[in-house]
């Protein structure tokens, strides 16, 4: 194992523009799948049930999965942050056993 020397070629993500590209790519994919969901919902309303076949009404609501995924992850992280206040100890906590 060695630390990097100054002459090495910079990595792809050392360029902040490439990081931005990834993030914008993510936004674009989110927009496209959300749009596709709306289209499929409209088709489902128009009677194309082979394209959209929700088991429950609320599951078929446009953007349900997008909303649920986003909110689930935000809640997950915010609750986990709070858990740290109660559960986190220094790394050597159990070392004196």
């Amino acid at each position: 194992m060695a630390n990097h020397d100054q002459n090495e070629k910079p990595g792809v993500f050392d360029n902040p523009r490439n990081v931005k590209r990834v993030i914008y790519g993510l936004y674009a994919v989110c927009a496209v799948v959300f749009a596709l969901d709306i289209v499929s919902w409209i088709q489902g309303m128009a009677g194309a049930h082979e394209l959209r076949h929700p088991e429950r009404g609320w599951e078929g609501f446009p953007g349900f999965y997008a909303f649920y995924g986003f909110v689930a992850c935000v809640l997950l992280v915010l609750v986990a942050r709070e858990m740290r206040k109660v559960l986190m100890r220094r790394e050597e906590y159990y070392d004196d056993e």
């Binding site: 993030i23 993510l26 936004y27 994919v29 989110c30 799948v33 959300f34 596709l36 969901d37 499929s40 394209l51 959209r52 076949h53 929700p54 953007g63 349900f64 999965y65 997008a66 909303f67 649920y68 995924g69 986003f70 689930a72 992850c73 935000v74 992280v77």
Partner: peptide
């Protein structure tokens, strides 16, 4: 197609949340 679209939505919007 419905299943694939819903799964991709849940995954990419989770990624969006992380981001």
């Amino acid at each position: 197609s419905a299943h694939v679209i819903s799964q991709i939505q849940i995954l990419f919007f989770s990624a969006l949340a992380f981001c």
